[in-house]
Amino acid sequence: MIDLDDFDRRILALLQENSRRTGADLSAAVGLSPAACLRRLQRLRDEGVIAREVALVAPEYRERKVTVFVLLTFERDRPDREDQFTRRMREAPEVVQCYHVTGSADYLLGIEVADLEDYQRFTKLHFYESYVKRFETHVVLKDLMR
């Protein structure tokens, strides 16, 4: 793990808002030369600090237009089932986020589907298992960050 200084943190914050910023944009915002910013950016990528860079597609252009968040609870602690479930969620293209969490549920999932019928098919395929005690679905009505 590498040590990050204030310049690195500011560069990362700016890139989280817009990963297409140029060296000149970063330079103006953080007070380093464009070349220094680009060297730091490359180091952050090489060291794995920047895990990946993705494009956020506008909802009206997405194939999967419905986003749901699911709180899922297992029947009991079963490490073998947890590993199997994790693998299945990683392989499912609908799952865009999967967190093992504390609290009343065991997992929090972010899922994108074409419509609610598609989500119903997904639940039957993945959640109707003997080790799943219950799941609670929250359908996103509006993304307030866009």
Rank of each mutant, 00 (worst) to 15 (best):
F69W: 03
F85A: 02
R40V: 03
A58F: 07
R87F: 00
Q120G: 13
R88M: 07
E60P: 14
V113G: 06
L72W: 00
A55S: 11
L44S: 03
L108V: 10
Q97P: 09
V54A: 08
H100M: 06
Q84E: 12
Q120S: 15
R64H: 12
V57Y: 03
E91C: 01
F69L: 05
R43P: 13
A35Q: 15
R45P: 15
H126G: 01
P93T: 02
E94K: 03
S130Y: 08
G103P: 15
Q120Y: 09
D83S: 11
F85C: 02
A58T: 12
L56C: 12
R78D: 12
L72M: 12
E82F: 01
P79D: 03
D80N: 04
F74P: 14
E60C: 11
R39V: 14
D77N: 13
L71M: 10
L71D: 10
R52K: 13
L32W: 02
I50H: 02
V49T: 09
T67S: 11
R90P: 13
E91P: 12
R52C: 10
R121Y: 11
S104Y: 08
E91N: 07
D83Q: 10
L56Y: 07
S104E: 14
Q84G: 06
Y128C: 09
Q97C: 05
E53I: 13
V95K: 04
V66T: 11
S104L: 14
A36S: 12
A35E: 14
D46A: 08
R78I: 08
F85L: 08
R45I: 14
P93K: 00
Y131T: 05
K65N: 01
R40W: 00
R39A: 11
Q120E: 15
R90A: 04
R88H: 01
C98D: 07
R121A: 15
P34F: 00
V57L: 11
Q84Y: 03
L41N: 04
E91L: 09
V95Y: 00
F122Y: 05
D115Y: 02
L32P: 13
V57C: 03
T102K: 07
C37A: 11
L72H: 01
T73M: 05
C98E: 05
M89V: 04
Y131C: 07
L41M: 06
T73K: 15
F69V: 04
E112F: 02
F122C: 05
E60H: 11
A36Q: 07
L32A: 05
T123R: 07
Y128K: 09
R76F: 05
L125I: 08
H126S: 03
E82Y: 03
